[in-house]
Simulated scan of single mutants.
Amino acid sequence: MAPKTPQWRGLAEQIAQEIAAGTAGYRPGDQLPQIRELVAQGKGSKTTILAAYKALEAEGLVSMVRGHGTKVRERPPHQIRRHQERYVWEKRLARRPGEERRSQGVIDKDTSLDHDQIETHATFSTIPADANLAERFGVETGTLMLHRQYWHSTSGDTTALSLIDSYLVHEVAARNPDLLDSSKEPWPGGTHHQLSTIGIEIDRIDDGVRTRLATQAEARKLGIPVGGAVILLDKTSVSTDGDVVEYSHVVLAGERTELQYSVPLERWTQ
C-alpha cells in the first residue's frame, strides 16, 4: 500500500494548484491567509500549515517575511540568452544611429519585453585590482580598475533580472570621462559602443559558465529561495589587439534563465 501523503504536503499541493490557476487571493503579490486563520478553518495544526508554507517557499512560489506574513511571489520574466546571437547582435547595435541604439538593448532581447519596460540601476566605483583581476587583464596587482555594478528590473519591480559586476582598467576608460559617470547609464549601444569611443573594438568574447547555490543577499535581490540555484557567467571581452578590455561576472537566477548555444562546425573535406 502506498504511503499516505503527509497533511502538510497535501495542503502545499492544494495551494500550489491555486497559485498556478491564478485563483483570486492566490495571484502574484496576494497575501496568503494567516496561519491562525487556516487553523480555525480546520486545515491543520500550526505546525502543519507552517510546514506547508515553508515547502511553498522552498519551491519559489511564496515568500515569507517575519511580521509581514506570506505572499505569492511575483514572477519576473524568463530569460533566454542565446549568447552567440546575442553578442553578434550587440556589436552590430553599436554601429547603429543614436536613436536606434537608445530604443533597444540586449536585456529586452533576452526577456522579450519592450525597451521602456526595463529599468537599469548602476553604481560605479574605483578599486585596486586584486590578484584575480590583475591576472585576467595582464596588469600589476593594485592597478586602478573601474568597477561597474549593474542590475536590471522590470518597471515598478525591485526584483533583479541579473546581478552584474563589470571591470575596466580605469586608465583606459578615463580616455572618455563619460565612461566614468554612472548617470550616463543605460548607455545606448552598451559596452561595445562605449569602448568604440576610445578606439577599441571587441574581437571576441570568452564565456565561462558554472552553478552554485545562491547566497542570502543574491536570493533576496533575485527574488529566489535562499539556497536556490544561480548560474554564474564569467564574460571576458578581448579586443582586436588581443588585450582583455572588459570582464563581467554575472549572477543569474537558475530557475528562470536558459542558456542556448548554436555552434557551427567545420565540415569534413570530401
Rank of each mutant, 00 (worst) to 15 (best):
E37P: 05
I19A: 00
Y150R: 13
I107L: 13
P128T: 11
I15P: 00
T236M: 09
D206N: 11
R148C: 13
S45D: 10
E74D: 15
L61W: 00
E85N: 10
E99A: 14
W187D: 02
A20T: 01
I127W: 07
S63L: 11
R82P: 00
A21K: 11
N176K: 11
K184H: 11
D130C: 06
L195Q: 01
G189S: 09
S162R: 13
V172C: 08
A131T: 12
L144T: 14
Q194V: 06
A219G: 07
L133W: 00
V263Q: 12
H170W: 13
K109D: 13
D181S: 02
P225T: 04
D203F: 08
D130F: 04
T154Y: 05
Q41S: 13
T269I: 13
G208K: 14
G10Q: 13
G44T: 04
T159Y: 09
A55P: 06
H170I: 06
Q84K: 12
G208M: 11
K4Q: 14
E85S: 12
I80V: 15
S248G: 08
M64S: 12
V263W: 11
G223R: 01
H152P: 03
H68W: 10
P128F: 08
A94N: 03
Y26I: 03
R148H: 13
L233V: 14
L180E: 04
G67Q: 02
T257A: 06
G156F: 14
H121M: 08
Q41T: 09
G44W: 01
E171P: 01
D206V: 14
R210C: 08
G10N: 13
D206F: 06
G227W: 05
V106P: 07
S237L: 12
D181W: 04
Y150W: 12
L180R: 03
E171Y: 08
R75I: 12
